[in-house]
Design a protein around this nucleic acid. Sequence first.
RNA 1: GGAGGGGUGGCCGAGUGGUUGAAGGCGGUGGAUUCGAAAUCCACUGUAGGUUCACGCCUACCGCGGGUUCGAAUCCCGCCUCCUCCGCCA
Length: 437
Amino acid sequence: MLDPRILADDPDLVKAHLMRRNADDSLISSVDRLVELRDNRNALIAEGDELRAARNTLSKQIGALMREGKRDEAEGIKAEVAAGKDRIAAIDEELAQIEAERHALSMALPNLLHDDVPPGNGDEDNLEVRRWGTPREDATESHVEIAEKLGILDVERSTKLAGARFAVLKGHGARLERALINFFLDVHTTEHGYEELMVPYIAHRSILEGTGQLPKFEADLFKLQGELNGQDAFLIPTAEVPVTNLHREEILAGEELPKKYCAFTPCFRSEAGSAGKDVRGLIRQHQFHKVELVWFVEPEKAEEAHEQLTGHAETILQRLGLPYRVMTLCGGDISFSAHKCYDLEVWLPSQGAFREISSCSNFDTFQARRMGLRYRPETDGKKAKPRAAATLNGSGLAVGRTLVAILENYVQDDGSVVIPEALRPWMGGIERITPKA
RNA sequence: GGAGGGGUGGCCGAGUGGUUGAAGGCGGUGGAUUCGAAAUCCACUGUAGGUUCACGCCUACCGCGGGUUCGAAUCCCGCCUCCUCCGCCA
């Protein structure tokens, strides 16, 4: 949610940002509607408060008169109070309608963009920031061929269980997946100062609204049938959802910041609208594993935090010796909630291309406003007013895609795959996976 | 799944339908006292919205949502949640 003050004071600024995102006209005109709704709302609140104030004083008079036994006078005032009652009810009803519309419109507005976000329509307009490593020049087989020859992936049988876009890993494949998860978590908790969380994989609607997946992108989610504990519920598409919402509707103490969490979770995505993309293999699945990094920080320190967080994800790729590049997403490609976003793209030799393996976003105060997450700044030891915190997150990393990258970047001429040295302690010392004879 | 008991301010804990935004205590902040500290004393100490140049004033909030009433923390209904016991279960 945008700062309501910016929305009220400078609607044109908000519109300019919407245009950088290539937003459609209806979204842009909703800004004017929001200004109008705010004015209406304030007028109604003023009138309602005045009527309530009058009611309160009269009711106190009734109480006093009743105690003195002056029944008749009390009855007269009762009638007077009753007269204002209908108007109060009417105002409340109108106000509820206005608030509902205001809420719907403001929850549909995406975040403002950082100045660094380049103009553009799609991923072809993203800006390369830096590269690391030297990509191998030969075109390998795809990870699917490599893995099947190693006997560590069974695509055929997985479809029996739940259809397309699922996979069954076997033997060293399953172990590799598990090793990556533990490697990621151990590095982030012991070297980068993150606290590990294990969280629910199901979240209520309001939680997904908090991080910004809802209300706009319900089609991308798996929704549970019926209600769970009284609310609509969804499988989480990323650990960002439960972890960022952990402190919703709280006021954190300033000295608690920055707060850094990491969490491993499965992620569930319906991949609506991705028909025909990455249909083979592990790249795009309905269910995948991810270790997520989440920060809560003062807004002034969000940019610095964003660089650090991105660096933590990069560390993993570097340890694994996987070549990658860092991209700043353009206005047309950046996600709804993000203020600025770096994608890490790993080299996939079979495709001769860099593919996304991590997305590191700075949300500024956008998510915090949606979920009522605040902190109390420390100013010379004195308590200041609570204000919205900044939130950030990044994959550290997507596990399945890392497995893909290892297979393709470490496959040898004989079809075996060398395990990156840094990972071997988590693989029980195994140095190489070889095809079954 | 069955039975019962709770949810009040940062924390503990009162609260008869009418100056209760909420006693009292703890904690916190400022001040007095002190060479300094402890102890003691005094004052302040929630969030949001509206309004005001500002001091301030007004409104709402006692798990959440509805209802009764001139007036609800207090009465009624629904929901969420926590605890205890029984059953079942990884």
